[in-house]
Design a protein around this nucleic acid. Structure first.
Length: 237
DNA sequence: GCGACAG
DNA sequence: ATCTTGTCGC
């Protein structure tokens, strides 16, 4: 697929905040995304391995045909991770590998789901949001744990599948605590870009099966990423 | 200085 | 995220 190089992928930490602030005002989470406009959905994830003080990253993108929910394409990339993990700046750490993998895709997915946040972020620039500018497609962020934004208070949704509570900051709903399966820990979702909160919620639920609290595309990418690491260690030792 | 803290 | 065995529960 075609990538939009809006800025270099290797940036000095000094510029992290200014880049996020610059892109933040271009974010659009006001438009609905309808199912009949979606043919393919991609799940993205990254796994790590520490080797002699260095960190190696493995990224995987799994593309699904929404109608059949079969994987129609996969793309991967592996490389050294240079940026340390800093809450609020995950994109600068993982995007280099993710974009490298995305470039290899023959298909251009209609939607990407990320392991991490969308606009549920101090500057509304979580990894899902940031990635959409490079991908040029709608994105959704699905996080397994909560990143506190502002003075938002968290309310636990009911136990039934589909139950949800809004995460409101300054009168604006920037995310939702969503129970994707009965009785399991909820996930924290938020639109990344080019899609609204309602569509993000509906699509996340549609893509979540009973085998995991995470939407299938993200879960499949997560598993694939561990397989990559496993086979790498096997031929390296 | 003291907590908070996506992956 | 990653390091890790058994074990409580449906």
């Amino acid at each position: 697929m075609k990538i939009h190089p809006i800025h270099p992928l290797n940036i000095n930490p000094d510029e992290f905040i200014s880049i996020q602030e610059k892109l933040a005002h271009k974010v659009d989470v006001s438009q609905p995304l309808y199912l009949h406009d979606i043919q393919t959905v991609a799940g993205v994830d990254v796994a790590y391995s520490s080797e002699n003080g260095k960190e190696l990253g493995f990224s995987h993108i799994a593309v699904f045909d929404l109608a059949t929910m079969e994987v129609i394409e996969r793309a991967e990339s592996r490389g050294h991770i240079t940026v340390p993990y800093m809450p609020g700046y995950l994109a600068f750490r993982e995007l280099p590998l993710i974009i490298e993998a995305a470039k290899k895709l023959r298909n251009t997915p209609d939607l990407f789901l990320f392991d991490g946040n969308g606009i549920l972020h101090p500057r509304k620039m979580g990894i899902a949001t940031h990635a959409s500018f490079f991908l040029g497609t709608p994105t959704i962020g699905v996080a397994k744990t909560y990143l506190k934004v502002g003075d938002s208070e968290l309310n636990e949704p009911a136990q039934e599948k589909g139950s949800k509570t809004d995460i409101v900051v300054n009168g604006e709903t920037i995310g939702r605590v969503l129970r994707t399966s009965e009785g399991v820990k909820p996930v924290y979702i938020s639109p990344g870009n080019q899609i609204d909160m309602e569509s993000s919620t509906r699509i996340t639920l549609l893509l979540t099966g009973s085998e995991s609290r995470l939407p299938i595309p993200v879960r499949v990418a997560d598993i694939a990423t561990r397989v990559m690491r496993q086979s790498w260690r096997k031929e390296y030792d």
